[in-house]
Design a binder for these strands. Structure first.
Lengths: 143, 143
DNA sequence: GTGAGTGCAAATGGTTTGCATGTTC
DNA sequence: GAACATGCAAACCATTTGCACTCAC
């Protein structure tokens, strides 16, 4: 899987005229391997030990490219910073009000709800983002 | 309606120990009268002609209080700034990718969808926010 | 009159940009 | 070797904070 994805990113970057650099692959790999929807800062800190010279600016610039290539989606659950998800399938997210973690919400079908909206609104709809808020099991256990 | 709402805000502010100032009432009135989900900056500019001395800081501080009183809800459709809505009912929003306007989406029932999520997730859910993205009729007409 | 609110200006923090140096192809 | 990428530092911009002056009560 790692190898396959590596090839994909490499190919996609080259196709669009971007160069393939270790930093870009590393940043994508962090996102692809994580279920925590890391922010730029989180990616930066995770790569710090392996790429001590990497800068936050490079993380942001790379994220911009990955977004452009359609390899990641951007989340904003109402925090001060954006989070990123290499799973570009359209799934809802759930955010813990206590600890701030963001989890995926798979296996819940929203097509019926989306259909109703598409029929109702005068907008031409191109996408959607659903955020749920609450308390995660870990935080609930502490209370 | 304006008077009624004015009384409500006044009462609520006093009850919670906040003072009633012209600025606070003006800021709430802008939000209550608008369907555009204005940002702090937009509120500020709208009040500029009437309250030339008002500062952005006051807008932000007042928003904080209105939030605390449950009089407004905060939106974040993925832009760089937050937007605010005096309609605190739980309704989805739709955001135009072209012009950035944010509209309400009333009359679409989401309870079934929410129920499914509540049953599926280990989180204790306390709220949700649904954002749709697309092109508004005005922008579509221009294309 | 007192304590809270306003408004200015400065600080903060996430993100972006400019540019000299380093790397990919 | 040319063009593009990196990484530093400075810039940016939304939001927050500190504080002297003002106002609601």
């Amino acid at each position: 899987m790692g190898v396959f994805m590596g090839v994909c990113v490499t190919t996609l970057l080259r196709e669009k005229g971007f160069k393939v650099t270790p930093q870009r692959l590393a940043i994508y790999n962090v996102l692809a391997a994580s279920k925590a929807h890391p922010s730029a800062e989180m990616i930066f800190h995770q790569l710090q030990p392996i790429y001590p010279t990497m800068s936050l600016a490079t993380v942001y610039k790379t994220i911009e490219i990955l977004k452009e290539l359609g390899l990641i989606q951007v989340l904003n659950a109402g925090e001060d910073s954006f989070r990123y998800d290499a799973d570009t399938s359209n799934h809802p997210h759930i955010c813990c009000r206590r600890c701030g973690r963001v989890d995926d919400l798979h296996g819940v079908d929203s097509t019926e709800f989306v259909e109703k909206v598409v029929k109702t609104t005068p907008y031409r709809i191109t996408g959607q983002q659903f955020y749920f808020y609450g308390v995660c099991p870990e935080c609930a256990a502490k209370e």
